[in-house]
């Protein structure tokens, strides 16, 4: 890694990551991908997020779906763990709760592949500092 020496270096990294994320999520770009975040804080892991993430990775690979699966912290919905956030290209992120193996199958088949609604969406109930 290179050293960050000034604010310009910091802005460069910020721009790089943001443009990479834009590429991934916009339908206009050829590199677009399904992005999935798995809540992997203690609450998620205790409810089985590790198994969910592994199963999700295996299934996506087997079905040859282009997706990036990353881990993230706690969104606060500890009662509904494991939770995953799915962002389909060109769409708003959607958070699903109680994601066990059966739910993973349903989300892949119905939401990711066919783009249809799946039960179990947690409505976002917070504002961010950028709102």
């Amino acid at each position: 890694m290179t050293r960050i020496k000034n604010l310009a270096d910091l802005h460069k990294i910020k721009e790089e990551v943001q443009s990479k994320n834009r590429l991934r999520s916009s339908l206009d770009y050829p590199e677009h991908l399904v992005q999935i975040k798995v809540g992997m804080a203690t609450c998620g892991i205790a409810s089985g997020a590790k198994e969910t993430m592994k199963y999700l990775n295996d299934e996506l690979e087997q079905q040859a779906i282009d997706a990036v699966v990353t881990k993230t912290g706690c969104l606060g919905y500890c009662y509904a763990e494991p939770t995953i956030e799915v962002t389909l290209p060109g769409k708003e992120p959607v958070v699903f709760g109680y994601v066990d193996k059966a739910k993973v199958v349903e989300i892949i088949d119905v939401y990711i592949k066919r783009g249809e609604q799946v039960e179990g969406i947690i409505p976002l109930n917070f504002q961010t500092i950028d709102d």
Binding site: K37, T70, T72, G73, C74, G76, P123, N125, F126, Q127
Partner: peptide, 20 residues
Amino acid sequence: MNDNKKQLRIALRNCGFINP
């Protein structure tokens, strides 16, 4: 303020959004 959104995340602004 939006009525269904009682929460405002400042300290938790990145929790659940970034890979830590």
